[in-house]
């Protein structure tokens, strides 16, 4: 009888791409839940919408490319991209924004570059940047956290706002604080106040802040940090990039804070504001677009951290992870080229 021929090794461990992606998605959930708790159902609606669009776009491209739709959808990568876009954009942004963003992410950023494993840029962040540049007003209009807001949006409110049905609901009402003043995100608020000549301490007394960090945002970040640590534990990601990002941001913000405590946010504020933890554990760690060697990944992460700090403090946008990640994506091949591990039996030079 003929026996089956295969190349060694004949055994493999049972951890597949789809499992890895699944784990990442699961670890995103705590953050998503906390985000919904503070900012209403809008985020969940956005996420579900993004997933539908992403899977449809993925299937359509697979169909066009004559490849297995099932295999492609089952790797969970499109779903992960969709969830990341969903949690990244403002919860009550109109539906067409997330549709445009997700379609762009899947079709242009991912598949036009060759599909999974071949894209140069992080699809979610590329989509975010596209939306931010194209629709800056909608993309920077975050509602206030539920604990400090006058009215929290209900599920119906969220749906009406997102799908633009029923004119009686106004977005602005969900941005009003208890004091009746429209609230921006903590990062935005601090940036605006500092530009208006206020000191950091003065700005931090506002209702959106809770001592050292922004109300709600601290918990959102904490939840993503927790999920990220689980990811590390599951070995779905390795520590290099996340550590690099956090260390880079921490060091840069510490230096800035020590030099000018009045005009700079504290390191703690930077680490627990905006998308810091989400990006550090779930976005920057996208292996496809990151550097590959361990040392290269630390450099890659640190580059993101430093860029984020620079753009947050010096740039025109309140948060900066999308830009920082895309810039670091550009540098990844370069880093890979120059940062190679010393192979066994080779001298260090």
């Amino acid at each position: 009888m003929a026996f089956k021929i295969a190349s060694s090794p004949h055994v493999t461990q049972n951890l597949h791409t789809s499992t890895v992606m699944q784990r990442v998605i699961l670890c995103l959930l705590p953050g998503l839940v906390v985000q919904c708790a503070f900012f209403g159902w809008g985020t969940l609606v956005q996420v579900l919408l993004a997933i539908i669009v992403a899977l449809s776009a993925e299937a359509a491209v697979m169909k066009l490319r004559n490849r297995s739709i099932k295999a492609s959808l089952s790797d969970n990568s499109a779903m992960l991209t969709a969830i990341l876009i969903g949690v990244a954009i403002p919860p009550l942004a109109p539906w067409w924004m997330i549709v445009i963003g997700t379609t762009f992410a899947i079709i242009v950023v991912k598949h036009l570059y060759g599909g999974l494993g071949h894209n140069l840029f992080n699809p979610a962040m590329a989509a975010y940047v596209l939306l931010l540049i194209s629709f800056p007003v909608q993309m920077t209009t975050w509602i206030a956290p539920s604990t400090v807001v006058m009215h929290s949006p209900s599920v119906l409110d969220s749906l009406q706002l997102i799908f633009n049905i029923g004119a009686h609901v106004n977005m602005d009402q969900f941005r009003l604080g208890i004091d009746g003043v429209a609230m921006a995100t903590p990062l935005d608020t601090l940036k605006t106040d500092l530009s208006m000549g206020l000191t950091r301490t003065e700005s931090m007394t506002k209702a959106i802040f809770d001592g050292a960090t922004g109300v709600g945002w601290f918990w959102v970040n904490l939840a993503y940090l927790g999920g990220g640590l689980v990811l590390l534990k599951l070995k779905a990601i390795r520590w290099h990039i996340s550590t690099g990002v956090l260390a880079g941001l921490f060091v840069a913000s510490s230096v800035g804070f020590l030099l000018s405590p009045d005009t700079q946010g504290s390191p703690l504020f930077h680490l627990f504001s905006g998308a810091t933890m989400l990006a550090a554990f779930f976005i920057a760690t996208d292996p496809v677009t990151a550097a590959t060697s361990p040392r290269g990944r630390i450099i890659f992460g640190a580059l993101i951290g430093v860029l984020v700090y620079i753009i947050r403090t010096q740039g025109g946008y309140p948060d900066a992870f999308a830009f920082a990640v895309l810039l670091a994506n550009l540098c990844a091949p370069f880093i890979d080229y120059y940062v190679r591990p010393r192979s066994y039996g080779h001298s260090t030079s």
């Binding site: 791409t17 295999a71 990568s77 599909g115 999974l116 494993g117 071949h118 292996p287 496809v288 361990p294």
Partner: peptide, 9 residues
């Protein structure tokens, strides 16, 4: 079957 490398490292 072989799938795309995601450069997980």
């Amino acid at each position: 079957d072989e799938k795309a490398c995601i450069r997980c490292g």
